[in-house]
Simulated scan of single mutants.
Amino acid sequence: MTEKNVLIFQGGWDGHEPVKVAARFAKLMEKNGYTCKIYDNQEVLLDLDLLMRQDLIIPCWTMGKIDAAARANIVKAVAAGTGLAGCHGGMCDAFREDVEWQFMTGGQWVSHPGGDGISYQVNICKGSSPIVEGLEDFPVCSEQYYLHVDPAVEVLATTRFPIVPYYHISNKEVDMPVAWTKFWGNGRVFYNSLGHHDDVFEKSPEAQILMERGMLWAAQGKEYASEHKLTTERFENTAKMY
C-alpha cells in the first residue's frame, strides 16, 4: 500500500494560532490514513523532490514573506498534482507581496470589518460540490473575511456583507465566498476562510467538517492525476515565468 503524505508548514503571525491549527489538521488527516509532518520553517519548501512526493500541502503561515524559490517549488508541485488546502489567514493572508501565491490560492484577504467576535451566517451553496453534501447553513462568531477572489473558483459557501457599518456599506450587499475549490495545473486547491482561532472549529462543528472534506478532496487529486496519466507539459510550455 502506497503511503499517503501531508506536509504542513506553520509560522507567521501567532495570533492565528498556527501551532494549534496545524495540529488539528494533522490529526484530521491522520484519522483518514495520511502520514503528516509539521515543519516550523520554510526551508523545507526548497526541497522540490520532497514536495513532489506529497499528496497534500497545508500552509499555516499568516503574513510574512516567502522565498521566491520556495513558492516556485510549491507552484510546480501543485501543478503536478499535489493538493493545496488551508484556512483563514494561514493560506489567503499569507505572503501579501507574492501575486503568484494569490493566483494559485484563489483569493486574498483585504479586511474583516468589525474585527473578531462578529456574529454572521455561513450559507452553503447546495449542489456545488460533494464537499458540502448534507451540510446546512450555520452561524459563526469570529472574524468575517472580506476577500478579493479569483472569478474562476467554484464557490461552496458564502456570507452576506455588510454586517457592521464601515466605508463599504455605501455599496450594495454582496455574498462573499467563504469556501471554494479551484484547480492549479493538475492539482486541486481548497480554501476555507473560517479559522481565526483554533476554537472556531469547536464552536462551529460544520466548519471542521467543511475543512476535513476539503483537505481530503485536495489530497485525492494526485491519485486522480496519476491514474489518468495527466502531465504538466501543456502548462509548462506556455507558463509565464516570474
Results as ranks from 00 to 15, higher is better:
residue 117 G to N: 02
residue 160 R to L: 14
residue 97 E to S: 13
residue 15 G to K: 07
residue 55 D to V: 03
residue 201 F to M: 07
residue 147 L to H: 09
residue 101 W to L: 12
residue 198 D to P: 01
residue 79 A to L: 06
residue 182 K to W: 01
residue 50 L to C: 06
residue 144 Q to Y: 09
residue 187 G to L: 02
residue 233 E to G: 03
residue 237 N to S: 12
residue 210 L to E: 03
residue 210 L to M: 13
residue 34 Y to S: 11
residue 23 A to D: 11
residue 125 C to R: 13
residue 105 T to M: 04
residue 70 A to K: 10
residue 237 N to V: 11
residue 44 V to S: 08
residue 2 T to N: 13
residue 56 L to T: 07
residue 133 E to Y: 09
residue 56 L to I: 08
residue 123 N to E: 15
residue 193 S to Q: 07
residue 140 V to C: 02
residue 103 F to E: 14
residue 59 P to G: 05
residue 51 L to H: 09
residue 66 I to N: 06
residue 134 G to S: 09
residue 4 K to A: 08
residue 223 E to A: 13
residue 119 S to V: 07
residue 202 E to Y: 11
residue 201 F to I: 09
residue 33 G to P: 04
residue 95 F to N: 03
residue 166 Y to W: 15
residue 20 K to I: 08
residue 110 V to S: 05
residue 65 K to S: 12
residue 56 L to R: 02
residue 84 L to A: 03
residue 230 L to N: 03
residue 2 T to Y: 07
residue 225 A to Q: 04
residue 179 A to M: 10
residue 155 V to M: 11
residue 214 G to M: 05
residue 226 S to T: 13
residue 163 I to A: 11
residue 142 S to Y: 06
residue 216 L to S: 06
residue 5 N to W: 04
residue 211 M to E: 04
residue 105 T to I: 14
residue 6 V to Y: 00
residue 183 F to N: 14
residue 33 G to T: 12
residue 49 D to F: 06
residue 7 L to N: 00
residue 126 K to C: 10
residue 227 E to V: 08
residue 220 Q to C: 12
residue 225 A to P: 05
residue 39 Y to A: 15
residue 237 N to E: 12
residue 8 I to M: 04
residue 226 S to E: 15
residue 37 K to F: 05
residue 38 I to V: 07
residue 24 R to Q: 13
residue 229 K to Y: 08
residue 49 D to M: 07
residue 83 G to F: 07
residue 171 N to E: 14
residue 108 Q to T: 11
residue 230 L to R: 05
residue 166 Y to F: 14
residue 20 K to Y: 09
residue 79 A to M: 15
residue 152 A to I: 06
residue 212 E to A: 10
residue 21 V to H: 00
residue 139 P to N: 15
residue 156 L to G: 11
residue 135 L to W: 09
residue 198 D to N: 15
residue 146 Y to C: 13
residue 201 F to P: 02
residue 48 L to T: 02
residue 92 C to W: 04
residue 179 A to V: 11
residue 39 Y to R: 15
residue 56 L to N: 12
residue 99 V to A: 10
residue 90 G to K: 01
residue 29 M to S: 06
residue 227 E to P: 05
residue 106 G to S: 07
residue 51 L to P: 03
residue 30 E to I: 10
residue 172 K to D: 14
residue 78 V to P: 01
residue 45 L to V: 10
residue 181 T to S: 07
residue 199 D to H: 15
residue 60 C to I: 10
